[in-house]
Simulated scan of single mutants.
Amino acid sequence: MVVSTTMPRPKAVLFDWDNTLIDSWPCIHKAMNAALKAMDHPAWTFEETRARVGLSMRDAFPGLFGDRWEVARDVFYTAFRESHLDMLVPLDGAQIMLETLAERGIYLGVVSNKTGDFLREEADALGWTGLFGALVGAGDAMRDKPAPDPVLMALEPARMAPGPEVWFVGDTQVDLMCAKASGCTAILLRPAPPAPGEFIECPLTHHLSGCLDFIGLLPKG
Rank of each mutant, 00 (worst) to 15 (best):
M1T: 09
M1L: 13
M1A: 07
V3T: 07
P10C: 04
K11P: 00
V13R: 09
D18W: 02
D18H: 05
N19S: 15
T20I: 00
L21M: 09
L21N: 11
D23Q: 14
P26M: 11
H29D: 12
K30D: 05
M32V: 14
N33D: 13
A34N: 02
L36C: 10
A38M: 05
D40M: 09
A43H: 01
E47I: 05
E48R: 14
R50E: 11
A51L: 07
A51C: 06
R52C: 10
V53G: 09
V53F: 10
R58W: 04
R58Q: 12
A60Q: 15
F61G: 05
F61P: 05
W69M: 10
W69I: 03
V71E: 13
A72K: 10
D74T: 09
T78A: 15
F80M: 08
F80Y: 15
R81K: 13
E82L: 13
S83F: 01
M87K: 11
L88C: 08
L91R: 15
D92K: 12
G93W: 07
A94H: 01
I96T: 15
I96G: 00
I96M: 02
M97R: 08
T100K: 05
L101G: 12
L101M: 06
E103M: 06
E103C: 07
G109D: 11
V111W: 01
N113H: 06
K114D: 04
G116E: 12
R120L: 03
E121G: 06
E122C: 12
E122D: 14
D124N: 11
A125E: 12
A125Q: 10
G127L: 09
G127Y: 07
G127W: 06
W128L: 14
T129F: 01
G137L: 01
M142I: 05
D144H: 03
K145G: 05
P146N: 06
P148A: 12
L152E: 08
L152C: 10
M153R: 14
A154R: 10
E156V: 00
P157H: 07
P157C: 10
M160L: 15
A161G: 05
P162A: 03
G163N: 04
P164D: 04
P164M: 07
E165W: 02
E165Q: 12
F168A: 13
F168C: 07
G170A: 14
G170Q: 11
D171T: 09
Q173C: 01
V174Y: 11
D175S: 10
L176R: 09
L176A: 14
M177D: 13
M177Q: 15
C178N: 10
C178F: 03
A179F: 03
A179C: 12
A179I: 00
G183K: 02
G183M: 02
C184K: 00
C184R: 01
T185G: 05
A186F: 02
I187H: 08
I187F: 02
R190E: 04
R190F: 01
P191D: 11
P194M: 03
P196M: 01
G197K: 03
E201Q: 14
P203A: 01
L204V: 12
T205F: 00
H206V: 08
H206I: 04
H207R: 10
G210S: 12
G210V: 00
C211F: 01
L212C: 10
F214A: 13
F214Y: 07
I215Y: 00
G216E: 05
L218A: 09
K220P: 00
